[in-house]
C-alpha cells in the first residue's frame, strides 16, 4: 500500500486539499489526481521543460518536485496563467508571432517566459534565449518563441 499524505496548498489562486502518494511528483498529481492536463510530460527528468509550473513565484519542473512538497505553497499552472489578464500579452504574442506549432512545449514555454519576464521585463533576445534554455522545442527552431517573448517587453509587469 502506498503511503499517502494530505497536503493543502493554493492552486491557481484557489485553496485546496489533496491526498497524494508521498513519492508522486507534482506533474503526476496535477495531471492524474487533480485533472489539470495543461502541464505536459515530456521527459520526467527535468531536461525538456514541458512540465514547467510556478511555485511561490519561481518556475520549476513539476516532474522534479515531490507533490508532498507543494504543502502550504502557492502553485500556478498554465491554467492559472490562462486566467491571468497580465499574461494575456504573452499568450497573444505567442499566437501572433507564430511561436506555436505542435504546441506541446508551449504551456511550459509560456510558464517559463512569464517567470522570466517578471524577473527581467526588458530581457533582450540573448537573455531570453538563456532564460528558456531548459525548454526544448522540436518544431519552431526557437526563433519565433524568442521573438514573441521579446515583443512582450513593457506589456507585462
Amino acid at each position: 500500500m502506498l503511503l499517502k499524505h494530505d497536503i493543502e496548498f493554493t492552486l491557481n489562486g484557489v485553496k485546496r486539499q489533496v491526498s497524494v502518494d508521498v513519492t508522486t511528483n507534482t506533474l503526476a498529481m496535477l495531471r492524474d489526481v487533480i485533472g489539470l492536463t495543461g502541464t505536459k510530460y515530456g521527459c520526467g527528468e527535468g531536461e525538456c521543460g514541458a512540465c514547467t509550473i510556478q511555485v511561490d513565484g519561481v518556475s520549476l519542473n513539476s516532474c522534479l518536485m515531490f507533490a508532498v512538497d507543494c504543502d502550504g505553497r502557492d502553485v500556478t499552472t498554465i491554467e492559472g496563467l490562462a486566467n491571468d489578464s497580465k499574461a494575456d500579452a504573452l499568450r497573444e504574442a505567442f499566437v501572433e508571432h507564430g511561436a506555436v506549432q505542435c504546441g506541446f512545449c508551449t504551456p511550459g514555454m509560456i510558464m517559463q517566459a512569464d517567470h522570466l519576464l517578471h524577473k527581467h521585463p526588458h530581457a533582450d533576445a540573448d537573455s531570453v534565449k538563456r532564460g528558456i534554455e531548459g525548454n526544448l522545442c522540436r518544431c519552431t527552431g526557437y526563433k519565433k518563441i524568442v521573438d514573441a517573448i521579446v515583443a512582450v517587453d513593457g506589456a507585462v509587469k
Binding site: T23, E45, G46, L64, M65, F66
Partner: peptide, 25 residues
C-alpha cells in the same frame, strides 16, 4: 533526505535509488 528534489525525483522514479523507510523533507 529530500531537499530540492531535482536529483531525488528522477533517480527514485527510475529505480536507480531506493527511498528508505522514512522520507524526510
Amino acid at each position: 533526505i529530500l531537499a530540492g528534489g531535482t536529483d531525488l525525483t528522477p533517480q527514485s522514479q527510475s529505480g536507480k535509488l531506493r527511498i528508505k523507510q522514512t522520507l524526510m523533507n
